[in-house]
Design a protein around this nucleic acid. Structure first.
Length: 358
DNA sequence: AAGTATGATTTCAG
DNA sequence: CTGAAATCATACTT
């Protein structure tokens, strides 16, 4: 590694000394040794190589041709090969073996999971289904939004793919260009296939870092889209009046133990056309909010109590037993609150009706 | 527009 | 895992 500068320096040094005028070995062939003349020659060629980029294209082309035909060219080429051999050997130690970038893998996985980078359609079905399940099973009304979501997603996918293709094409073009350039140059200076390969690798890495940015921003876009369309909170709909009434009826008729069993939840869910999870949410919210401000709910409580009382009366007079879903250990506390009924999990230490009604 | 209601999510404890 | 409590984000009301 530290050899190269020295070599270059000495060459340029010789070149500088020998540059002015035409090949001097022609003129002073008798004076100096033959080695001197050869040095002159090599220096001359090197100098020409060094300055070739400063010249106009035509001039450079002509000069290049002249160089290639120069009688000393093979010798120079050999020398360069030797130097190369040394330096390449020293470089070889620092070869890359490219561990797969975890960040890139993460992005790839996500794009695949979201159906952006995977196979055409249906790729996102898993994610879509999960989202549908998460946002509540009553899917009749969100199908429109879903198609909207899918349209936007496929738009993103299309942009992603065209961009990706563009990058790929640019990368290939650039790679072949560089390879041609190197092959062309390999006539003048020694370039091993391995070096070309390495150069190609470098180019690919550069381009893949650009691709990574593309993937990153695509991921961001998908996330935004997701949160905009699929986040249930963003498209919250109140349950319909009937569902709320059913839930409230159950809640207030089981006020001392408003914890519907799994079966009761399922039944309620079916009746209200919502998911069991939504029933659980509703009861969770209801319990905490009721407890927080019982006074505020008093009117509602009275109303439902009266209603269920009427219902019960009707039911008994008709001899029918079709009632609201039952809970194992808390049935029939509707009419008379304050019954000291043993409860599995007493939430309220007192009966709200007794404390707040009168 | 501001305030309230409400369904969903998050965090935490048992 | 379930439920309490806090919080978020939207829907609805005034």
């Amino acid at each position: 590694m530290d050899e190269q500068p020295r070599l270059m320096h000495s060459h340029t040094g010789v070149g500088m000394a020998g540059h002015p005028g035409l090949p001097q070995h022609m003129q002073e062939g008798t004076g100096g040794t033959d080695g001197d003349g050869r040095k002159q020659d090599i220096g001359d060629i090197l100098q020409q190589i060094m300055t070739i980029t400063d010249q106009s294209l035509d001039e450079a082309q002509a000069r290049k041709h002249a160089l290639n035909c120069h009688r000393m060219k093979p010798a120079l080429f050999n020398v360069l090969c030797e130097i190369k051999e040394k330096t390449v050997l020293s470089i070889r130690g620092a070869q890359e073996e490219e561990p797969p970038d975890p960040q890139l893998m993460r992005l790839d996985n996500m794009l695949l999971a979201e159906g952006v980078s995977g196979p055409e359609k249906g790729g996102g079905s898993a994610a879509a289904a999960a989202a549908a399940a998460a946002s509540g099973g009553a899917g009749a009304d969100n199908s429109a939004e879903h198609s909207d979501y899918r349209a936007k997603l496929s738009q993103i996918r299309q942009i992603y793919h065209t961009e990706l293709e563009k990058y790929e094409q640019a990368c290939n073009e650039f790679t072949t260009h560089v390879m041609n350039l190197l092959r062309e140059q390999s006539r003048t200076r020694p370039i091993s296939p391995k070096e070309i390969e390495r150069m190609v690798n470098i180019i690919h890495r550069k381009f893949s870092s650009i691709q990574m940015q593309l993937k990153q921003s695509t991921c961001e876009a998908v996330m935004i889209l997701r949160s905009r369309f699929l986040d249930a909170r963003r498209k919250r709909r109140n349950f319909n009046k009937q569902a709320t009434e059913i839930l409230n009826e159950y809640f207030y008729s089981h006020l001392s133990n408003p914890y519907p069993s799994e079966e009761a939840k399922e039944e309620l869910a079916k009746k209200c056309a919502i998911t069991v999870a939504q029933v659980s949410n509703w009861f969770g919210n209801k319990r905490i909010r009721y407890k927080k401000n019982i006074g505020k709910f008093q009117e509602e409580a009275n109303m439902y109590a009266a209603r269920t009382a009427v219902n019960a009366a009707n039911a008994s007079s008709h001899g029918s037993q079709a009632n609201s879903p039952s809970t194992p250990n808390s049935a029939g506390e509707t009419g008379s609150p304050c019954q000291p009924e043993p409860r599995a999990k007493p939430l309220y230490a007192y009966c709200p009706f007794c404390l707040h009604l009168s």
